[in-house]
Design a binder for these strands. Structure first.
Length: 641
RNA sequence: GGUCCGAUAGCUCAGUCGGUAGAGCAAAUGGCUUUUAACCAUUGGGUCCCAGGUUCGAGUCCUGGUCGGAUCACCA
């Protein structure tokens, strides 16, 4: 993009322009040599920015420093008068209930009766002046010698009315009114959509019944050098929405109409979810801790880590994939109820439900088991949903999700029931097949094909899939080279079949319980069945939202489980867990029986804000870096010839 | 990584069969002292994502690429 000379060119004669242009090109060349992006290349230069630049210079002449340091807002509404406060708590409410009722009805689009309006306006004027500040939320509507414009505080907007003969401008150098006829009107003429101004004036109701401020003093506060997002459409390009979240947030405060929550409301709701969770946990005796984000071992979950290097120690460090093992060390140390609500990092794919860094709540409670944890989790989710949305039912992608009821279903049981339902008559399912390697192979093939074809399939289709279902699977290699026991094959099939057949259909909150032990290396086995882990995952709308279990606290058994994981790692499973010797040492001091859970805050927020993409509930999601323009080098080279 | 879709004025988008690049908003200028998607008049504004190809002629067709979105695989 070429630098824009139009603005500077209008200030001098022809030779001055040539000299200045030459000078600017030299400055550009030296900045480029140091790999510094020139200012004019950071924002695109066009007629819109040129106009705003001219306006900025005019304002500098009129009021002095165009970036003053403060603006004191009045306190008529009881606290500092933000626009939202003034609209929500009109100062007249304390003195006159009837007038307050009329004011409140204006919000519904009603007009006050003519005689009441005059009386109300007298009352409002008698309250004295308010001082408010905000961003100009619309381009000013100018009518010769008077104008209307709305100011926004990011949440609400309040209209101001500027009349040429009534307004005076404030000097930004002295802070005092400029005693000069028509100065404020001239200043107003150089204001653009998006600029920040502060005004002082009295409240009144317009003919069309809108509470407004009749401006007596006008102070310029800051310039918007870039044009504002489209007032009707906001920002349509999802890339710009995510890269320039600030612009997206401005758009959500400026847009006239919108469906669903605005971006700002999404993040306000996210904040509510998080604060309600913190309050709930603290009310129940939990203490918040912070454990290392940079760790010498990436363990505690099955995932690939980000690697970095510490220069002074000259060691590799990993961004943590889970705080789990640190939190349990704290349980060993006597923190009976402990939680951490912070970021985890996983070096894996990006999708609508995965971001490389994501926010996870993990907490642990001594003397509790998996069943107590499910009860507590239900309670925590319910109060959080209630605080964030005001009810227990939310609509997510057309489905009504009811947080009033959480089902509990065994993983094995759910898969058996589904297989009984979908397998053809000619192959009536028998649960003994789940421990027959030949049958499991056929079932794997069937489920894979079934999953590919999507649901539902007819009986005929099921029969033909079943009859064809005899080919090698990814398990065969594991069996042949001895890295997979038959038991592991059965478990893997169960999990796989669950993911394909059951998981996508779990719309209502459902705890899936009874996980195979072999895929739960940190979890205690069930006292009734040593092959089953005391573990659950919570699914809502086909998405895993939480994962909890009775924590394994036998150091020798934990060591053996880690050892199994390390063997799996040896044979190529990059995500198998890494042995943490210090954790084994910690457990050896003795850890009380305990239950723990991890809850994905981003996914919970998606559910409670009806957002399909995780990137819509993360303020600054990860994206590829922007490509820099490369044209200026050639421009300079050709200009200098 | 696979598949599908998209990229045109500052913004939101049209652009027919391959034949002179369009609208609304925004901007600039003028008018208008209670408007509210203010209104009226006038004006300026384009590397049609990039590179090749086909053609007398490409925003449009073909090939390759960049960026983005959706989806699948992996994962929480």
């Amino acid at each position: 993009m070429r630098p824009n000379f139009a603005v500077s060119a209008c200030r001098g004669g022809f030779s001055f322009v040539i000299a200045q242009r030459w000078f600017i090109l030299r400055v550009y060349a030296s900045l480029k040599a140091m790999n510094i992006t020139p200012f004019d290349e950071i924002i695109e230069q066009n007629d819109q920015t040129a106009a705003r630049h001219e306006h900025l210079e005019k304002l500098r002449e009129l009021v002095g420093n165009p970036y003053p340091n403060k603006f004191g807002r009045s306190r008529l509404s009881g606290d500092e008068d933000t626009i939202t406060r003034l609209l929500g708590h009109p100062p007249i409410a304390e003195v006159d209930a009837e007038m307050a009722a009329i004011l409140a009805s204006l919000g519904e689009g009603e007009r006050p009766p003519a005689e009441k309006k005059d009386e109300l306006n007298e009352r409002l004027k008698a309250l004295g002046n308010v001082r408010i500040a905000g961003r100009m939320a619309v381009p000013p509507r100018v009518m010769g010698k008077a104008a209307f414009v709305h100011l926004s505080d990011g949440i609400s907007r309040l209209q101001i009315y500027v009349r040429k003969q009534d307004a005076v401008a404030i000097s930004n150098d002295t802070g005092e009114p400029i005693d000069e006829e028509g100065k404020a009107w001239e200043v107003f003429g150089y204001l653009d959509h998006g600029d920040f101004i502060g005004v002082e004036g009295y409240l009144f109701i317009t003919n069309t019944g809108e509470l407004s401020v009749h401006v007596e003093k006008l102070q310029f506060l800051a310039k918007a050098m870039l044009p504002m997002p489209d007032k009707m459409h906001g920002i349509a390009d999802p890339e710009i929405r995510q890269r320039q979240r600030y612009a997206d947030l401005i758009a959500s405060s400026l847009q006239i109409e919108h469906d669903g929550l605005t971006t700002r409301e999404v993040f306000e709701r996210r904040a509510k979810i998080i604060s309600s969770i913190r309050h709930f946990l603290e009310d129940h005796g939990y203490i918040e801790v912070e454990t290392p984000m940079l760790t010498p071992k990436a363990t505690g979950a099955a995932a690939k880590p980000f690697v970095t290097h510490h220069n002074a120690l000259d060691i590799e460090l990993y961004a943590r994939i889970a705080p789990e093992l640190y939190l349990k060390r704290l349980v060993v140390g006597g923190f009976e109820k402990v939680y951490e609500l912070n970021r985890n990092f996983r070096n894996e794919g990006i999708s609508y439900k995965h971001n490389p860094e994501f926010t996870m709540l993990e907490f642990y409670c001594a003397y509790m088991d998996v069943n107590g944890m499910m009860d507590f989790c239900e309670e925590l989710m319910r109060q959080s949903v209630l605080k964030a949305t005001g009810g227990l039912k939310v609509t997510y992608e057309g489905n009504e999700v009811d947080f009033g009821i959480f089902r509990r279903v065994g993983m094995r049981q759910s898969v058996i029931e589904e297989l009984e339902r979908i397998l053809p008559e000619s192959a009536r399912f028998d649960s003994a097949w789940l421990t027959d390697i030949t049958r499991v192979r056929q079932l794997v093939a069937f489920v894979l094909r079934y999953g590919d074809k999507g649901k539902p399939v007819s009986i005929d289709q099921a029969i033909s899939i079943w009859e064809d279902a005899d080919f090698t699977t990814s398990f065969d290699k594991g069996i042949e080279d001895g890295t997979l026991s038959h038991e592991q094959v059965f478990d893997s099939f169960l999990v796989h079949a669950f993911e394909i057949l059951i998981e996508p259909n779990l719309i209502q909150p459902t705890f899936i319980i009874d996980f195979p032990k072999s895929i739960s290396p940190l979890s205690k086995a069930s006292p009734e069945n040593p092959q089953i882990a005391e573990r659950f995952e919570l699914f809502i709308n086909g998405m895993e939202v939480a994962n909890g279990f009775s924590e394994l606290n036998d150091p020798k058994e934990q060591y053996d489980r880690f050892a199994d994981q390390m063997k799996a790692r040896e044979s190529g499973d990059e995500e198998a867990m890494v042995l943490d010797e210090d954790y084994i040492r910690a457990l050896s001091y003795g850890m009380p029986p305990a239950a723990g859970i991890g809850i994905g805050i981003d996914r919970l927020t998606m559910l409670l804000t009806n957002k399909h993409s995780i990137r819509d509930v993360i303020l600054f999601p990860h994206m590829r870096p922007e490509r820099k323009g490369t044209s200026t080098d050639e421009t300079i080279a050709s200009e200098e010839k």
